[in-house]
C-alpha cells in the first residue's frame, strides 16, 4: 500500500458516498446513468469473486464487500425506490458495444486461461469504459447538478491517483500489471474533458454547462 493508492481508494469511497448523498438529498436519481451504475455492479461482482478464496487483507476484504454492496444498493434505489425520477429516454448508450469488445479483450489478454481470471480481466477492461454511458448522458443533456459533478470528479480522481501508484510500485516493488495499467490509463483519459469543465467552471462556482 502506498499513499497514492490509499488516497485513490478513499476517493473512490467518497465518490460512492457523494452519489448516495445526491440520491437521498434530492430524492432523485436524475442525471445519473442507470447503465453506468449497472456496469459498475457487473465490474465489482466479476472482479471480486476471489473474495471467497483469496485473502489479501482486512482492508481489501472490507472495501470489496462495500463496493459490491453499495453498487447493488444504488441499482435498487434507481430501479425501485426512485424509479420515477429516472428517465431511460436520455440514458441511451448501447452497452452491448462495451460488453462485447471487453469480452473479446479478456479472451485475448489475461494472466491465466481460467474462468475467474478471464472474468477478472473482463472486469478491468469493462471498468475502463463503464463511465461512458454517464458521460454520454452528460453530453446529451449539456448540464449537470453540482453534486453529480462532484461524484464524477471523485471517481475520476480515484482513477488518476492509481497512475502514480503504478509508477511508485514499478520503482519500489519492480512490479507492473500491464493489463490494469493500460486499462487504467484509458479510463483516466476518458475523464480529461470532464475535468477541464469541472476545474474551469464548477470549482469557480459556476454551474456545469457544456457549450451548445
Amino acid at each position: 500500500m502506498n499513499i497514492f493508492r490509499l488516497l485513490g481508494d478513499l476517493s473512490h469511497l467518497a465518490s460512492i458516498l457523494i452519489l448516495l448523498q445526491k440520491i437521498q438529498s434530492t430524492r432523485s436519481c436524475r442525471g445519473i446513468s442507470f447503465k453506468t451504475q449497472a456496469l459498475y455492479a457487473t465490474v465489482f461482482i466479476t472482479r471480486y469473486l476471489d473474495l471467497f478464496y483469496d485473502w489479501v487483507s482486512l482492508y481489501n476484504f472490507v472495501m470489496k464487500i462495500f463496493f459490491i454492496a453499495s453498487s447493488c444498493y444504488v441499482l435498487y434505489l434507481m430501479k425501485y425506490k426512485y424509479r420515477p425520477t429516472h428517465d431511460p429516454s436520455i440514458d441511451t448508450f448501447r452497452v452491448e458495444y462495451l460488453l462485447g469488445p471487453c469480452a473479446v479483450l479478456a479472451l485475448l489478454f489475461h494472466y491465466r486461461f481460467t474462468l475467474p481470471e478471464l472474468l477478472w480481466s473482463f472486469s478491468i477492461f469493462l471498468e475502463s469504459v463503464a463511465i461512458l454511458p454517464q458521460l454520454f448522458m452528460l453530453q446529451r443533456t449539456g448540464e449537470a447538478e453540482t453534486i453529480t459533478t462532484h461524484y464524477l470528479a471523485a471517481l475520476g480522481a480515484y482513477r488518476a491517483l492509481y497512475i502514480p501508484n503504478w509508477i511508485y510500485r514499478w520503482f519500489t516493488e519492480d512490479m507492473v500489471d500491464p493489463i490494469a495499467v493500460t486499462a487504467g490509463i484509458v479510463q483516466t483519459a476518458l475523464y480529461l474533458d470532464f475535468f477541464y469543465v469541472y476545474f474551469t467552471k464548477v470549482l469557480q462556482g459556476q454551474k456545469f454547462e457544456l457549450p451548445a
Partner: peptide, 10 residues
C-alpha cells in the same frame, strides 16, 4: 521487472 496481476489492488 515482474509482470503480473496486481491482485492486492481494488
Amino acid at each position: 521487472s515482474m509482470w503480473g496481476p496486481a491482485k492486492d489492488e481494488l
